[in-house]
Design a protein around this nucleic acid. Structure first.
Length: 546
RNA sequence: UGGGCUAUAGCCAAGUGGUUAAGGCAUCGGACUUUGACUCCGACAUCGGUGGUUCGAAUCCACCUAGCCCAGCCA
Protein backbone atom coordinates (compact mmCIF):
# COMPACT_ATOMS: atom_id res chain seq x y z
CA UNK A 1 0.00 0.00 0.00
CA UNK A 2 1.19 3.45 -0.74
CA UNK A 3 2.54 5.48 2.09
CA UNK A 4 0.80 8.66 2.97
CA UNK A 5 3.16 11.47 2.20
CA UNK A 6 3.39 15.15 2.91
CA UNK A 7 2.52 16.14 -0.64
CA UNK A 8 -0.71 14.18 -0.53
CA UNK A 9 -1.57 16.07 2.63
CA UNK A 10 -0.94 19.38 0.90
CA UNK A 11 -3.07 18.42 -2.07
CA UNK A 12 -5.90 17.15 0.09
CA UNK A 13 -5.85 20.34 2.09
CA UNK A 14 -5.89 22.50 -1.05
CA UNK A 15 -8.80 20.54 -2.43
CA UNK A 16 -10.74 20.78 0.81
CA UNK A 17 -10.24 24.49 1.02
CA UNK A 18 -11.39 24.81 -2.56
CA UNK A 19 -8.09 26.29 -3.70
CA UNK A 20 -8.20 23.98 -6.69
CA UNK A 21 -10.85 21.90 -8.37
CA UNK A 22 -8.31 19.22 -9.07
CA UNK A 23 -4.53 19.02 -9.10
CA UNK A 24 -2.46 19.54 -12.22
CA UNK A 25 1.07 18.16 -12.17
CA UNK A 26 3.80 17.79 -14.69
CA UNK A 27 7.01 15.95 -15.46
CA UNK A 28 9.36 18.49 -17.07
CA UNK A 29 12.45 16.70 -18.34
CA UNK A 30 15.34 18.46 -19.95
CA UNK A 31 15.68 16.50 -23.18
CA UNK A 32 19.39 15.91 -22.86
CA UNK A 33 19.76 12.28 -21.86
CA UNK A 34 18.07 9.01 -21.08
CA UNK A 35 15.58 8.45 -18.31
CA UNK A 36 16.58 6.10 -15.52
CA UNK A 37 15.05 4.60 -12.39
CA UNK A 38 15.71 7.79 -10.48
CA UNK A 39 13.41 9.68 -12.81
CA UNK A 40 10.74 7.06 -12.32
CA UNK A 41 9.95 8.44 -8.90
CA UNK A 42 9.23 11.89 -10.31
CA UNK A 43 7.25 10.53 -13.22
CA UNK A 44 5.17 8.10 -11.21
CA UNK A 45 4.59 10.47 -8.32
CA UNK A 46 3.49 13.32 -10.52
CA UNK A 47 1.28 10.98 -12.46
CA UNK A 48 -0.35 9.17 -9.55
CA UNK A 49 -0.78 12.30 -7.48
CA UNK A 50 -2.73 13.86 -10.32
CA UNK A 51 -4.74 10.75 -11.10
CA UNK A 52 -5.52 9.82 -7.50
CA UNK A 53 -7.25 13.16 -7.06
CA UNK A 54 -8.97 13.33 -10.41
CA UNK A 55 -6.43 15.74 -11.82
CA UNK A 56 -4.35 16.12 -14.92
CA UNK A 57 -0.78 15.21 -15.71
CA UNK A 58 1.34 17.02 -18.28
CA UNK A 59 4.50 15.95 -19.99
CA UNK A 60 6.53 19.02 -20.79
CA UNK A 61 9.91 19.11 -22.42
CA UNK A 62 11.86 21.86 -20.78
CA UNK A 63 13.72 22.72 -23.93
CA UNK A 64 15.16 26.09 -23.10
CA UNK A 65 18.76 25.33 -23.97
CA UNK A 66 19.28 24.13 -27.55
CA UNK A 67 23.02 23.78 -26.99
CA UNK A 68 22.64 20.76 -24.74
CA UNK A 69 19.33 19.37 -25.90
CA UNK A 70 18.35 17.12 -28.72
CA UNK A 71 15.06 15.94 -30.14
CA UNK A 72 16.30 12.36 -30.22
CA UNK A 73 16.00 12.18 -26.45
CA UNK A 74 12.37 13.19 -26.58
CA UNK A 75 11.33 10.07 -28.42
CA UNK A 76 13.04 7.77 -25.98
CA UNK A 77 11.61 9.70 -23.06
CA UNK A 78 8.11 9.47 -24.45
CA UNK A 79 8.55 5.78 -25.04
CA UNK A 80 9.83 5.21 -21.51
CA UNK A 81 7.10 7.24 -19.85
CA UNK A 82 4.42 5.52 -21.89
CA UNK A 83 5.94 2.17 -21.00
CA UNK A 84 5.57 3.08 -17.34
CA UNK A 85 1.91 3.59 -18.06
CA UNK A 86 2.01 7.24 -17.06
CA UNK A 87 -0.09 8.60 -19.87
CA UNK A 88 0.06 12.34 -20.15
CA UNK A 89 -3.07 14.36 -20.71
CA UNK A 90 -1.10 17.01 -22.55
CA UNK A 91 2.27 17.18 -24.21
CA UNK A 92 3.91 20.58 -24.13
CA UNK A 93 7.20 22.17 -25.04
CA UNK A 94 8.62 25.06 -23.09
CA UNK A 95 9.76 26.49 -26.40
CA UNK A 96 6.13 27.01 -27.36
CA UNK A 97 6.01 29.67 -24.65
CA UNK A 98 9.00 31.66 -25.84
CA UNK A 99 6.84 34.53 -27.04
CA UNK A 100 5.02 34.79 -23.74
CA UNK A 101 8.25 34.54 -21.83
CA UNK A 102 9.74 37.35 -23.84
CA UNK A 103 6.69 39.51 -23.19
CA UNK A 104 6.85 38.80 -19.49
CA UNK A 105 10.52 39.63 -19.38
CA UNK A 106 9.72 42.89 -21.12
CA UNK A 107 7.03 43.49 -18.51
CA UNK A 108 9.68 43.16 -15.86
CA UNK A 109 11.89 45.61 -17.73
CA UNK A 110 9.04 48.09 -18.02
CA UNK A 111 8.33 47.76 -14.31
CA UNK A 112 11.93 48.52 -13.56
CA UNK A 113 12.44 45.02 -12.22
CA UNK A 114 14.91 43.85 -14.83
CA UNK A 115 17.89 45.39 -16.56
CA UNK A 116 20.36 44.68 -19.27
CA UNK A 117 23.80 44.02 -17.84
CA UNK A 118 26.95 44.22 -19.93
CA UNK A 119 29.33 42.84 -17.37
CA UNK A 120 31.36 39.98 -18.82
CA UNK A 121 30.85 36.54 -17.25
CA UNK A 122 33.90 36.77 -14.99
CA UNK A 123 32.75 40.11 -13.67
CA UNK A 124 29.26 38.89 -13.07
CA UNK A 125 30.67 36.06 -11.03
CA UNK A 126 32.94 38.38 -9.16
CA UNK A 127 30.18 40.88 -8.43
CA UNK A 128 27.95 38.08 -7.19
CA UNK A 129 30.03 37.80 -4.05
CA UNK A 130 30.29 34.45 -2.34
CA UNK A 131 28.60 32.41 0.35
CA UNK A 132 29.94 34.58 3.12
CA UNK A 133 30.04 37.99 1.48
CA UNK A 134 27.30 40.00 -0.17
CA UNK A 135 27.57 40.86 -3.83
CA UNK A 136 28.20 44.17 -5.47
CA UNK A 137 25.64 45.89 -7.64
CA UNK A 138 26.31 45.98 -11.33
CA UNK A 139 27.16 49.41 -12.74
CA UNK A 140 24.40 48.80 -15.28
CA UNK A 141 21.82 48.14 -12.60
CA UNK A 142 20.24 51.56 -12.64
CA UNK A 143 20.17 52.35 -16.29
CA UNK A 144 16.93 54.00 -17.40
CA UNK A 145 13.96 51.84 -18.23
CA UNK A 146 13.81 53.20 -21.78
CA UNK A 147 17.40 52.17 -22.37
CA UNK A 148 16.73 48.70 -20.99
CA UNK A 149 13.77 48.34 -23.30
CA UNK A 150 15.86 49.34 -26.30
CA UNK A 151 18.74 47.07 -25.36
CA UNK A 152 16.55 44.05 -24.59
CA UNK A 153 14.81 44.48 -27.92
CA UNK A 154 18.23 44.65 -29.51
CA UNK A 155 19.21 41.43 -27.79
CA UNK A 156 16.17 39.75 -29.20
CA UNK A 157 16.78 41.17 -32.67
CA UNK A 158 20.31 39.90 -32.80
CA UNK A 159 22.01 43.26 -32.59
CA UNK A 160 24.60 41.98 -30.16
CA UNK A 161 27.09 39.17 -29.99
CA UNK A 162 26.67 36.02 -27.93
CA UNK A 163 27.58 36.75 -24.35
CA UNK A 164 27.83 40.47 -24.86
CA UNK A 165 25.03 41.21 -22.44
CA UNK A 166 22.32 39.52 -20.44
CA UNK A 167 18.98 40.46 -18.97
CA UNK A 168 18.92 40.30 -15.20
CA UNK A 169 16.21 40.55 -12.60
CA UNK A 170 16.73 43.42 -10.17
CA UNK A 171 16.30 41.88 -6.77
CA UNK A 172 18.93 42.02 -4.04
CA UNK A 173 22.68 41.71 -4.46
CA UNK A 174 23.16 41.29 -0.74
CA UNK A 175 20.63 38.51 -0.24
CA UNK A 176 21.99 35.56 1.71
CA UNK A 177 20.28 33.44 -0.92
CA UNK A 178 22.63 33.53 -3.89
CA UNK A 179 19.75 32.94 -6.26
CA UNK A 180 18.28 36.32 -5.44
CA UNK A 181 21.42 38.25 -6.34
CA UNK A 182 20.07 39.65 -9.61
CA UNK A 183 19.75 36.33 -11.42
CA UNK A 184 20.15 36.19 -15.16
CA UNK A 185 16.88 35.86 -17.03
CA UNK A 186 17.98 35.78 -20.66
CA UNK A 187 21.27 35.08 -22.37
CA UNK A 188 22.24 35.59 -26.00
CA UNK A 189 22.98 32.24 -27.57
CA UNK A 190 22.96 31.83 -31.31
CA UNK A 191 22.01 28.18 -31.56
CA UNK A 192 19.31 26.76 -33.78
CA UNK A 193 16.49 25.22 -31.80
CA UNK A 194 14.96 22.01 -33.09
CA UNK A 195 11.51 23.50 -32.55
CA UNK A 196 11.84 27.24 -33.08
CA UNK A 197 14.67 27.09 -35.57
CA UNK A 198 16.52 30.38 -35.82
CA UNK A 199 13.69 32.52 -34.58
CA UNK A 200 15.43 33.19 -31.30
CA UNK A 201 18.98 34.11 -30.44
CA UNK A 202 18.10 34.69 -26.80
CA UNK A 203 16.97 31.90 -24.53
CA UNK A 204 15.46 32.13 -21.04
CA UNK A 205 17.18 30.68 -18.01
CA UNK A 206 15.59 27.92 -15.96
CA UNK A 207 14.77 30.04 -12.93
CA UNK A 208 12.75 32.42 -15.05
CA UNK A 209 11.32 29.97 -17.53
CA UNK A 210 10.17 27.24 -15.20
CA UNK A 211 7.72 29.15 -13.02
CA UNK A 212 6.23 30.75 -16.10
CA UNK A 213 5.82 27.39 -17.80
CA UNK A 214 4.06 26.06 -14.74
CA UNK A 215 1.86 29.10 -14.43
CA UNK A 216 0.96 29.12 -18.11
CA UNK A 217 -0.16 25.51 -17.92
CA UNK A 218 -2.06 26.04 -14.71
CA UNK A 219 0.10 23.59 -12.81
CA UNK A 220 -1.12 23.54 -9.22
CA UNK A 221 1.64 21.57 -7.54
CA UNK A 222 5.05 21.81 -9.09
CA UNK A 223 7.21 19.05 -7.71
CA UNK A 224 10.96 19.20 -7.94
CA UNK A 225 13.97 17.93 -6.10
CA UNK A 226 15.51 19.24 -2.93
CA UNK A 227 18.27 21.28 -4.50
CA UNK A 228 15.65 23.73 -5.74
CA UNK A 229 14.47 24.70 -2.28
CA UNK A 230 16.70 27.75 -2.47
CA UNK A 231 15.09 28.68 -5.74
CA UNK A 232 11.56 28.77 -4.41
CA UNK A 233 11.67 32.45 -3.37
CA UNK A 234 12.80 33.29 -6.90
CA UNK A 235 10.12 31.06 -8.39
CA UNK A 236 7.48 32.89 -6.40
CA UNK A 237 9.03 36.25 -7.25
CA UNK A 238 8.74 35.63 -10.98
CA UNK A 239 5.19 34.33 -10.78
CA UNK A 240 4.18 37.40 -8.82
CA UNK A 241 6.00 40.10 -10.72
CA UNK A 242 5.21 38.66 -14.10
CA UNK A 243 1.59 38.94 -13.03
CA UNK A 244 0.76 35.39 -13.92
CA UNK A 245 -2.86 34.43 -13.69
CA UNK A 246 -2.18 31.13 -11.98
CA UNK A 247 0.17 30.72 -9.06
CA UNK A 248 1.64 27.25 -8.97
CA UNK A 249 3.25 26.07 -5.78
CA UNK A 250 6.68 24.54 -5.88
CA UNK A 251 7.16 21.59 -3.54
CA UNK A 252 10.45 19.80 -3.15
CA UNK A 253 11.06 16.16 -2.37
CA UNK A 254 14.06 13.88 -2.16
CA UNK A 255 15.50 12.30 -5.24
CA UNK A 256 15.63 8.54 -5.50
CA UNK A 257 19.27 7.68 -5.19
CA UNK A 258 20.45 4.16 -5.77
CA UNK A 259 23.96 3.24 -4.69
CA UNK A 260 26.33 1.17 -6.81
CA UNK A 261 24.73 2.13 -10.08
CA UNK A 262 26.10 3.98 -13.06
CA UNK A 263 23.61 6.62 -14.19
CA UNK A 264 25.75 9.55 -15.22
CA UNK A 265 25.60 10.35 -18.92
CA UNK A 266 29.32 10.59 -19.49
CA UNK A 267 29.97 7.54 -17.36
CA UNK A 268 27.56 5.39 -19.30
CA UNK A 269 28.87 6.74 -22.56
CA UNK A 270 32.36 5.75 -21.50
CA UNK A 271 31.24 2.25 -20.56
CA UNK A 272 29.61 1.91 -23.95
CA UNK A 273 32.67 3.21 -25.78
CA UNK A 274 34.95 0.87 -23.88
CA UNK A 275 32.67 -2.06 -24.57
CA UNK A 276 32.01 -2.75 -20.91
CA UNK A 277 28.30 -2.59 -21.55
CA UNK A 278 26.52 -3.13 -24.84
CA UNK A 279 24.53 0.08 -24.96
CA UNK A 280 22.19 2.38 -23.09
CA UNK A 281 19.76 -0.49 -22.75
CA UNK A 282 22.28 -3.00 -21.43
CA UNK A 283 20.52 -5.04 -18.76
CA UNK A 284 23.09 -4.12 -16.13
CA UNK A 285 22.09 -0.48 -16.32
CA UNK A 286 19.06 1.04 -14.67
CA UNK A 287 17.97 3.26 -17.50
CA UNK A 288 14.30 2.67 -18.13
CA UNK A 289 15.10 1.24 -21.53
CA UNK A 290 17.51 -1.22 -19.91
CA UNK A 291 14.96 -2.28 -17.34
CA UNK A 292 12.43 -2.77 -20.09
CA UNK A 293 14.80 -4.92 -22.12
CA UNK A 294 15.68 -6.96 -19.07
CA UNK A 295 12.00 -7.75 -18.69
CA UNK A 296 11.21 -5.74 -15.57
CA UNK A 297 7.44 -5.22 -15.50
CA UNK A 298 6.51 -1.52 -15.26
CA UNK A 299 4.01 -2.37 -12.56
CA UNK A 300 6.87 -3.66 -10.43
CA UNK A 301 8.51 -0.26 -10.73
CA UNK A 302 5.27 1.41 -9.68
CA UNK A 303 4.98 -0.81 -6.64
CA UNK A 304 8.59 -0.23 -5.75
CA UNK A 305 8.24 3.55 -6.02
CA UNK A 306 5.03 3.57 -4.05
CA UNK A 307 6.57 1.49 -1.30
CA UNK A 308 9.36 4.00 -0.94
CA UNK A 309 7.00 6.89 -0.46
CA UNK A 310 7.87 10.49 -1.05
CA UNK A 311 10.27 11.64 1.60
CA UNK A 312 11.83 14.98 2.21
CA UNK A 313 14.95 13.31 3.45
CA UNK A 314 17.68 12.07 1.25
CA UNK A 315 18.55 8.44 1.54
CA UNK A 316 19.81 5.74 -0.74
CA UNK A 317 17.73 2.75 -1.66
CA UNK A 318 19.45 -0.47 -2.55
CA UNK A 319 18.52 -1.79 -5.95
CA UNK A 320 17.82 -5.29 -4.63
CA UNK A 321 14.67 -3.93 -3.09
CA UNK A 322 13.28 -3.65 -6.60
CA UNK A 323 13.96 -7.34 -7.18
CA UNK A 324 11.38 -8.31 -4.61
CA UNK A 325 8.73 -6.27 -6.39
CA UNK A 326 9.68 -7.83 -9.70
CA UNK A 327 9.26 -11.34 -8.32
CA UNK A 328 6.09 -10.35 -6.56
CA UNK A 329 4.55 -9.14 -9.79
CA UNK A 330 5.70 -12.02 -11.93
CA UNK A 331 4.91 -14.77 -9.44
CA UNK A 332 1.45 -15.60 -10.63
CA UNK A 333 1.79 -14.18 -14.14
CA UNK A 334 4.76 -15.95 -15.67
CA UNK A 335 4.64 -19.46 -17.07
CA UNK A 336 6.93 -21.70 -15.08
CA UNK A 337 8.83 -24.03 -17.33
CA UNK A 338 12.08 -25.95 -17.28
CA UNK A 339 15.33 -24.67 -18.67
CA UNK A 340 18.74 -26.19 -18.17
CA UNK A 341 21.31 -23.45 -18.26
CA UNK A 342 24.47 -25.46 -17.70
CA UNK A 343 23.55 -28.91 -19.00
CA UNK A 344 24.93 -32.32 -18.24
CA UNK A 345 23.55 -35.44 -19.87
CA UNK A 346 21.73 -38.18 -17.99
CA UNK A 347 21.05 -41.53 -19.70
CA UNK A 348 18.28 -43.58 -18.18
CA UNK A 349 19.46 -47.12 -18.82
CA UNK A 350 16.20 -48.94 -18.10
CA UNK A 351 14.09 -46.70 -20.33
CA UNK A 352 13.75 -48.00 -23.90
CA UNK A 353 15.85 -46.05 -26.34
CA UNK A 354 13.07 -45.83 -28.90
CA UNK A 355 10.38 -44.80 -26.46
CA UNK A 356 9.09 -41.29 -25.93
CA UNK A 357 6.15 -40.30 -23.81
CA UNK A 358 4.30 -37.08 -23.24
CA UNK A 359 3.74 -35.72 -19.77
CA UNK A 360 1.55 -32.85 -18.71
CA UNK A 361 2.45 -30.22 -16.19
CA UNK A 362 0.79 -27.07 -14.87
CA UNK A 363 2.21 -23.82 -16.16
CA UNK A 364 1.91 -22.18 -12.79
CA UNK A 365 0.80 -23.99 -9.66
CA UNK A 366 -0.31 -20.72 -8.12
CA UNK A 367 -2.41 -19.66 -11.07
CA UNK A 368 -4.46 -22.32 -12.79
CA UNK A 369 -5.58 -19.85 -15.42
CA UNK A 370 -2.23 -20.24 -17.08
CA UNK A 371 -3.23 -23.78 -17.97
CA UNK A 372 -1.09 -26.79 -18.61
CA UNK A 373 1.58 -27.79 -21.03
CA UNK A 374 2.96 -30.99 -22.41
CA UNK A 375 6.53 -32.08 -22.14
CA UNK A 376 8.31 -35.05 -23.63
CA UNK A 377 10.32 -37.64 -21.76
CA UNK A 378 12.84 -40.14 -23.08
CA UNK A 379 15.90 -42.05 -22.01
CA UNK A 380 18.19 -39.04 -22.37
CA UNK A 381 17.67 -35.84 -20.43
CA UNK A 382 19.69 -32.83 -19.41
CA UNK A 383 19.93 -31.71 -15.84
CA UNK A 384 21.77 -28.80 -14.31
CA UNK A 385 25.45 -29.54 -13.80
CA UNK A 386 25.29 -28.18 -10.28
CA UNK A 387 22.49 -30.59 -9.42
CA UNK A 388 24.85 -33.58 -9.38
CA UNK A 389 27.70 -34.47 -7.07
CA UNK A 390 29.18 -37.95 -7.22
CA UNK A 391 29.00 -38.23 -3.47
CA UNK A 392 26.26 -36.74 -1.38
CA UNK A 393 28.15 -34.11 0.61
CA UNK A 394 25.85 -33.87 3.61
CA UNK A 395 22.34 -34.62 4.75
CA UNK A 396 21.14 -31.25 3.53
CA UNK A 397 21.99 -32.05 -0.08
CA UNK A 398 18.67 -32.30 -1.86
CA UNK A 399 19.93 -33.15 -5.32
CA UNK A 400 21.34 -36.07 -7.28
CA UNK A 401 24.31 -38.25 -6.31
CA UNK A 402 25.40 -41.81 -7.00
CA UNK A 403 23.04 -44.20 -5.28
CA UNK A 404 20.70 -41.36 -4.49
CA UNK A 405 17.20 -41.00 -5.86
CA UNK A 406 15.62 -37.67 -6.79
CA UNK A 407 12.44 -36.64 -8.50
CA UNK A 408 12.62 -35.18 -11.96
CA UNK A 409 9.94 -32.59 -11.60
CA UNK A 410 6.72 -33.60 -13.37
CA UNK A 411 8.26 -36.93 -14.45
CA UNK A 412 9.81 -39.83 -12.54
CA UNK A 413 12.21 -40.61 -9.73
CA UNK A 414 15.64 -41.48 -11.01
CA UNK A 415 18.60 -42.94 -9.20
CA UNK A 416 22.16 -42.27 -10.38
CA UNK A 417 24.33 -45.37 -10.72
CA UNK A 418 27.42 -44.48 -12.68
CA UNK A 419 29.18 -41.48 -14.09
CA UNK A 420 31.61 -40.86 -16.94
CA UNK A 421 34.14 -38.06 -16.86
CA UNK A 422 35.84 -36.36 -19.76
CA UNK A 423 39.59 -35.93 -19.94
CA UNK A 424 39.39 -32.73 -17.91
CA UNK A 425 37.64 -34.50 -15.11
CA UNK A 426 34.27 -32.92 -15.76
CA UNK A 427 31.14 -34.98 -15.55
CA UNK A 428 30.21 -36.06 -19.07
CA UNK A 429 27.38 -38.52 -18.67
CA UNK A 430 25.43 -39.75 -15.71
CA UNK A 431 23.83 -43.20 -15.96
CA UNK A 432 20.64 -43.60 -14.03
CA UNK A 433 17.61 -45.83 -13.69
CA UNK A 434 14.03 -44.70 -13.28
CA UNK A 435 11.12 -46.24 -11.47
CA UNK A 436 7.93 -46.35 -13.57
CA UNK A 437 5.79 -46.50 -10.44
CA UNK A 438 6.88 -43.00 -9.44
CA UNK A 439 5.32 -41.13 -12.31
CA UNK A 440 4.19 -37.66 -11.31
CA UNK A 441 0.51 -37.44 -10.64
CA UNK A 442 0.23 -41.15 -9.90
CA UNK A 443 -0.03 -40.54 -6.19
CA UNK A 444 3.03 -42.65 -5.47
CA UNK A 445 4.11 -42.14 -1.90
CA UNK A 446 5.91 -45.28 -0.80
CA UNK A 447 9.14 -43.38 -0.42
CA UNK A 448 10.41 -39.85 -0.50
CA UNK A 449 13.00 -38.72 -3.02
CA UNK A 450 16.08 -36.82 -1.99
CA UNK A 451 14.70 -33.65 -3.46
CA UNK A 452 13.26 -32.50 -6.74
CA UNK A 453 15.27 -31.20 -9.66
CA UNK A 454 14.26 -29.94 -13.08
CA UNK A 455 15.27 -31.43 -16.41
CA UNK A 456 14.74 -31.16 -20.12
CA UNK A 457 14.25 -34.04 -22.55
CA UNK A 458 17.44 -34.03 -24.62
CA UNK A 459 15.71 -35.46 -27.65
CA UNK A 460 13.37 -32.50 -28.10
CA UNK A 461 15.16 -29.73 -26.21
CA UNK A 462 15.46 -26.33 -27.84
CA UNK A 463 18.89 -24.73 -27.60
CA UNK A 464 18.91 -21.34 -25.96
CA UNK A 465 21.32 -18.70 -24.79
CA UNK A 466 21.04 -17.41 -21.25
CA UNK A 467 22.48 -14.11 -20.16
CA UNK A 468 23.00 -14.01 -16.44
CA UNK A 469 23.43 -10.55 -14.99
CA UNK A 470 24.80 -9.45 -11.68
CA UNK A 471 25.71 -6.07 -10.27
CA UNK A 472 27.79 -4.02 -12.67
CA UNK A 473 29.50 -2.40 -9.73
CA UNK A 474 30.90 -4.60 -7.01
CA UNK A 475 29.26 -3.28 -3.83
CA UNK A 476 32.07 -4.71 -1.73
CA UNK A 477 34.60 -2.27 -3.07
CA UNK A 478 35.08 1.11 -1.43
CA UNK A 479 32.27 3.33 -2.75
CA UNK A 480 34.67 6.26 -2.88
CA UNK A 481 36.87 4.55 -5.44
CA UNK A 482 36.55 5.49 -9.08
CA UNK A 483 33.65 3.50 -10.48
CA UNK A 484 35.83 1.97 -13.15
CA UNK A 485 37.87 0.28 -10.45
CA UNK A 486 34.74 -1.16 -8.94
CA UNK A 487 33.43 -3.01 -11.97
CA UNK A 488 32.36 -6.58 -11.33
CA UNK A 489 34.06 -8.80 -13.92
CA UNK A 490 31.23 -11.33 -13.65
CA UNK A 491 28.44 -8.86 -14.22
CA UNK A 492 27.45 -10.69 -17.37
CA UNK A 493 27.83 -14.41 -17.90
CA UNK A 494 26.51 -16.03 -21.06
CA UNK A 495 25.52 -19.70 -21.01
CA UNK A 496 24.33 -22.06 -23.73
CA UNK A 497 21.68 -24.53 -22.64
CA UNK A 498 18.19 -25.74 -23.42
CA UNK A 499 14.54 -25.14 -22.72
CA UNK A 500 11.65 -27.55 -23.04
CA UNK A 501 11.06 -28.46 -26.65
CA UNK A 502 7.29 -28.14 -26.74
CA UNK A 503 7.03 -24.62 -25.37
CA UNK A 504 6.14 -21.95 -27.90
CA UNK A 505 7.92 -18.80 -26.85
CA UNK A 506 6.19 -15.47 -27.36
CA UNK A 507 8.04 -12.30 -28.25
CA UNK A 508 9.39 -10.62 -25.09
CA UNK A 509 7.69 -13.20 -22.88
CA UNK A 510 8.90 -13.56 -19.34
CA UNK A 511 9.13 -17.05 -17.87
CA UNK A 512 10.04 -18.45 -14.55
CA UNK A 513 12.63 -21.10 -15.20
CA UNK A 514 11.94 -23.41 -12.34
CA UNK A 515 14.42 -23.22 -9.47
CA UNK A 516 16.42 -20.54 -11.28
CA UNK A 517 14.68 -17.28 -11.84
CA UNK A 518 12.70 -15.11 -14.15
CA UNK A 519 13.97 -14.74 -17.70
CA UNK A 520 12.74 -12.62 -20.56
CA UNK A 521 13.17 -13.17 -24.27
CA UNK A 522 15.69 -10.66 -25.54
CA UNK A 523 15.32 -8.63 -28.70
CA UNK A 524 18.38 -10.42 -30.05
CA UNK A 525 16.42 -13.64 -30.25
CA UNK A 526 15.69 -14.52 -33.85
CA UNK A 527 17.12 -17.73 -35.20
CA UNK A 528 18.28 -18.61 -31.73
CA UNK A 529 16.47 -18.17 -28.44
CA UNK A 530 18.12 -15.62 -26.17
CA UNK A 531 16.99 -14.96 -22.61
CA UNK A 532 17.98 -12.20 -20.22
CA UNK A 533 17.79 -13.05 -16.58
CA UNK A 534 15.30 -10.53 -15.27
CA UNK A 535 15.83 -11.50 -11.66
CA UNK A 536 16.97 -14.63 -9.89
CA UNK A 537 14.79 -16.58 -7.50
CA UNK A 538 15.58 -16.13 -3.85
CA UNK A 539 17.52 -18.95 -2.33
CA UNK A 540 18.34 -19.95 1.18
CA UNK A 541 20.71 -22.59 -0.16
CA UNK A 542 24.22 -21.61 0.73
CA UNK A 543 26.84 -23.75 -0.94
CA UNK A 544 30.26 -23.54 0.62
CA UNK A 545 32.41 -21.04 -1.16
CA UNK A 546 35.46 -22.38 -2.87
C1' U B 1 25.66 32.97 13.80
C1' G B 2 26.04 33.38 5.23
C1' G B 3 21.32 31.03 3.55
C1' G B 4 18.27 26.65 2.80
C1' C B 5 17.20 21.55 4.28
C1' U B 6 17.53 16.66 6.64
C1' A B 7 18.30 13.27 11.00
C1' U B 8 13.18 6.95 13.52
C1' A B 9 16.44 -0.59 13.15
C1' G B 10 21.63 -3.06 8.23
C1' C B 11 18.39 -0.23 3.98
C1' C B 12 13.68 2.48 2.85
C1' A B 13 9.75 4.51 5.68
C1' A B 14 4.89 5.67 8.78
C1' G B 15 4.14 8.53 13.04
C1' U B 16 2.25 15.91 13.93
C1' G B 17 1.65 15.07 22.89
C1' G B 18 -1.26 9.84 25.55
C1' U B 19 -2.19 1.92 25.17
C1' U B 20 3.15 -2.91 23.80
C1' A B 21 7.03 3.16 18.02
C1' A B 22 3.00 0.88 11.41
C1' G B 23 4.77 -1.46 7.12
C1' G B 24 8.34 -3.10 3.30
C1' C B 25 13.39 -4.92 2.12
C1' A B 26 17.40 -7.62 4.40
C1' U B 27 18.72 -11.04 8.29
C1' C B 28 17.97 -15.20 11.79
C1' G B 29 14.84 -19.32 13.60
C1' G B 30 10.77 -22.88 12.50
C1' A B 31 6.40 -25.26 9.65
C1' C B 32 4.97 -26.74 4.82
C1' U B 33 6.72 -28.05 -0.03
C1' U B 34 6.82 -32.27 -6.98
C1' U B 35 10.76 -25.10 -7.35
C1' G B 36 16.53 -25.16 -1.16
C1' A B 37 10.94 -20.84 -4.61
C1' C B 38 6.06 -19.52 -2.87
C1' U B 39 3.06 -19.53 1.59
C1' C B 40 2.69 -19.58 6.89
C1' C B 41 4.42 -18.73 11.92
C1' G B 42 8.22 -16.40 15.15
C1' A B 43 12.56 -13.02 16.34
C1' C B 44 14.56 -8.18 15.28
C1' A B 45 14.49 -0.01 17.39
C1' U B 46 12.87 3.79 22.69
C1' C B 47 13.19 7.53 17.85
C1' G B 48 21.26 11.87 16.16
C1' G B 49 22.93 14.01 21.33
C1' U B 50 22.09 16.94 25.82
C1' G B 51 18.95 19.81 28.69
C1' G B 52 14.02 21.66 29.36
C1' U B 53 8.28 22.14 29.20
C1' U B 54 4.45 18.42 30.62
C1' C B 55 0.84 13.91 34.70
C1' G B 56 2.78 12.17 29.87
C1' A B 57 7.32 13.65 24.05
C1' A B 58 9.89 10.40 18.48
C1' U B 59 6.19 14.27 18.47
C1' C B 60 6.76 21.19 21.83
C1' C B 61 11.25 24.50 23.29
C1' A B 62 16.72 25.42 23.70
C1' C B 63 21.47 24.24 22.70
C1' C B 64 24.73 20.86 20.31
C1' U B 65 26.36 17.18 16.61
C1' A B 66 26.34 14.95 11.76
C1' G B 67 25.06 15.01 6.62
C1' C B 68 23.14 17.33 2.01
C1' C B 69 22.30 21.75 -1.29
C1' C B 70 23.64 27.00 -3.04
C1' A B 71 28.84 31.36 -5.65
C1' G B 72 26.66 28.08 -14.60
C1' C B 73 25.28 33.41 -19.45
C1' C B 74 23.06 24.29 -17.01
C1' A B 75 18.54 22.36 -15.46
Amino acid sequence: MENKNFIRSIIEEDLEKGKHQYPVTRFPPDPNGFLHLGHARAIIMNYTLAKDYGGRFHLRFDDTNPVTEDAIFMDSMKRDIAWLGCHWDELYYASDYFDTMYEKAMLLVEKGLAYVCELPPEKIREYRGDLKNPGTESPYRDRPIEENIRLFKGMKNGDYADGQMVLRAKIDMSSPNMNMRDPIIYRIQRSPHYNTGNKWCIYPMYDFAHPLEDAIEGITHSLCSLEFEDHRPLYDWFVKHCEMEHTPRQIEFGKLKIPNQVVGKRHIRKLVEEGVVDGWDDSRLITLSALRRRGVPPQAIHNFIKALGLPKSEGETEIHMLDEYIRGHLKTRARRIHAVIDPVKVVITNYPDDKQETLTAPNNRENEELGEREMTFSNTVYIEREDFLEEKPNKKWKRLSLGIEVRLMHAYFIKANEVDYDEDGNVETIYATYDPKTKSGSGFNERKPNGTIHFVDAKTAKPAEFRLYEDLINPEIDPDADFEDRLNPNSKVVKQGFIEGLVEVQDKETFQFTRQGYFTVDQDANDKLVFNRTVALKSSFKPKKK
